[in-house]
Design a protein around this nucleic acid. Structure first.
Lengths: 165, 165
DNA sequence: CTGCTGGGTCTCAATGCGAGACCCTCGTAT
DNA sequence: ATACGAGGGTCTCGCATTGAGACCCAGCAG
């Protein structure tokens, strides 16, 4: 059975999960944010199988999150760097990191903290509303039909009910 | 080959990915945020195989993100509700949703938008620094060793180099 | 001419995913 | 008394994916 594809669902979360592809992809991106560029370094740091890494990098390049760049000729050597699309994924990783720090860390505390150059302090990620800058939580936020929702689906009673809130 | 476990890596992103388990889990959580509680409804809305759903729900309960609750006796019927830990995951989904809206939406725009009760406006998620409330991006944020990082590992030159920035 | 570095591909076994069928317990309509 | 439907699952089984490790190739250094 082929894995069910979410790429065409009317849901950005599903689409995002679909292209993440698996557990390794976010970790490859994490390494990229750490500044890693070269195949071998990704491979050693993560302990990922080489074929799996080749596959994930190829996917990330295809999807537009990374770019394969020849950094020298004779012999040609490639490295992998984040595109704007890839760099923008940082927020997602930061939110994940925060959640993990909060709920999965051991007594000793979070393994990694973030230094925010902008203010010079160590802080963690917080997810806020773009309009009022106050925290966005499950309690104070509700989904609504957006402009990109397929009109035909939007007619269905169960869908209507879901977004009625 | 058994899937490599990230549960004990010194990285909250890896740990989070490890317990997500697969592509379905975030979507099950999404449904839960939409207010879905019952097995059959999860199953119909997502079109997920019943055994896979049973497995994911069991995992979410085991990990502490959801609770199985008897909502009636004779016959006993159970439903699944988010715990505090589960509800706190909203931020991660919101960040994912925002990224997907930005980079994967079609011309028509995002399929779903968020209404923020707190301010009464429609906004999207933004990831900011907990200290200064300014956006946290790959460019202005750097990882540092945190208190929970395994001391033995922290000695390694490659690890030192990575967090030197 | 041997071996090292960098960036991969190939082979193959073992998981795990997912469809669909099946199961169990009540409550209710026939 | 019996069939049927709702609710919440488990069982079986085929195929796709995962991942370890071996192998490949090009250039350069000893």
């Amino acid at each position: 059975m082929r894995r069910t594809s979410f790429a065409n669902w009317p849901c950005s979360i599903a689409r995002t999960m679909d292209l993440l592809g698996d557990w390794w992809t976010p970790l490859v991106l994490r390494e990229a944010f750490y500044g890693i560029k070269r195949f071998d370094v990704f491979q050693e740091e993560l302990g990922i199988a080489r074929n799996t890494l080749a596959d994930r990098l190829r996917r990330l390049v295809d999807e537009g999150l990374m770019e394969k760049r020849a950094y020298q000729q004779e012999p040609v050597r490639y490295d992998y760097v984040l595109t704007d699309m890839g760099r923008d994924f940082f927020g997602v990783l930061a939110a994940m990191n925060r959640w993990g720090d909060r709920w999965l860390a051991e007594e000793a505390g979070p393994p990694v903290v973030f230094h925010h150059d902008r203010c010079g302090q160590e802080g963690h990620a917080e997810v806020v509303c773009s309009e009022c800058k106050e925290p966005m939580t499950a309690e104070n936020t509700r989904p609504r039909l957006g402009p990109g929702y397929p009109p035909r689906l939007a007619e269905r009673p169960d869908i209507k009910a879901r977004f009625a809130g």
